[in-house]
Write a protein that binds this DNA or RNA. Structure first.
Lengths: 130, 130
DNA sequence: GACAATCTTCTACGGATGTAGTATATTTTT
DNA sequence: AAAAATATACTACATCCGTAGAAGATTGTC
């Protein structure tokens, strides 16, 4: 499941609220995204063709629902980003998170908590950590 | 500076070793990437056109060098990924790092260290970019 | 019921991308 | 120097992507 940038926008909107009509999707997009109605429709049709969304008609109007899982889709996309763009290394991702895109205090704490947690449930190879 | 997926491959090779000829680049790519010589040349020419690399001739052969900074280019690309694909949220990135893409023990420790460090120097914490 | 608003389907089109063939110039090897 | 290998410049082309207009179907409104 490969999505184009514009398609991500649509999917993100749909993941937030669904089912939704083309009109609802447009309205939910950022102000600065000024797509014509038919542009969004084209996107939706293409997404339907690739089975990323389901199209259901009620009367004259189509309602759309995501068919792919957000978590999973993002995960795959990120894996691809790491593989292609970062040449397989996660380090740049980490420094992006930590240095560039300053995490809020909140996020930083949360991240540390997650890491500790991951550490604990990490299988056999744990050595001296007391 | 927007790079296509194939262009990232080339740039990653060039960042690793430069200047390099088209031939050297091909040879440095993963085994499973079987591009024709002219394909790589096309890529390089396009990259030269958009000023991402410099082309210098020595005799009959061209040598290429990156003109854009790896760190910076990746950073921008990642910001774009967060904005478009992740709808502005970094949380999915974190969980990708921590849950999906299991960090090695080594990487996890390093990440924690970085976080602690960022914590220390982040007294005058102001956020909200753009 | 007529007109306006809205939705639908179909078609289009320029630029980006992946992928490479051809013909030609140059360099290297017998 | 003739042949073989290699590099270059140019051209091509199918598909994807962003973006939307046109024309017709349906629904809402006075």
């Amino acid at each position: 499941m490969k999505l184009s940038e514009a398609e991500w926008q649509i999917m993100n909107a749909l993941w937030k609220k669904n089912p939704a009509t083309a009109r609802e999707i447009i309205d939910s997009l950022d102000e600065d995204v000024r797509w014509a109605y038919t542009t969004v429709k084209t996107m939706l049709t293409r997404l339907a063709v690739k089975k990323a969304v389901a199209e259901t008609k009620r009367g004259n109007t189509s309602f759309y629902t995501p068919l792919v899982d957000q978590q999973m889709t993002r995960r795959n996309a990120l894996q691809n980003v790491v593989d292609r763009m970062l040449d397989g290394a996660v380090a740049p991702l980490m420094s992006f998170l930590i240095e560039d895109r300053k995490l809020s205090d909140r996020e930083r704490k949360e991240l540390i908590r997650m890491l500790r947690n991951a550490d604990r449930k990490g299988e056999s190879d744990d050595r001296d950590h007391k």
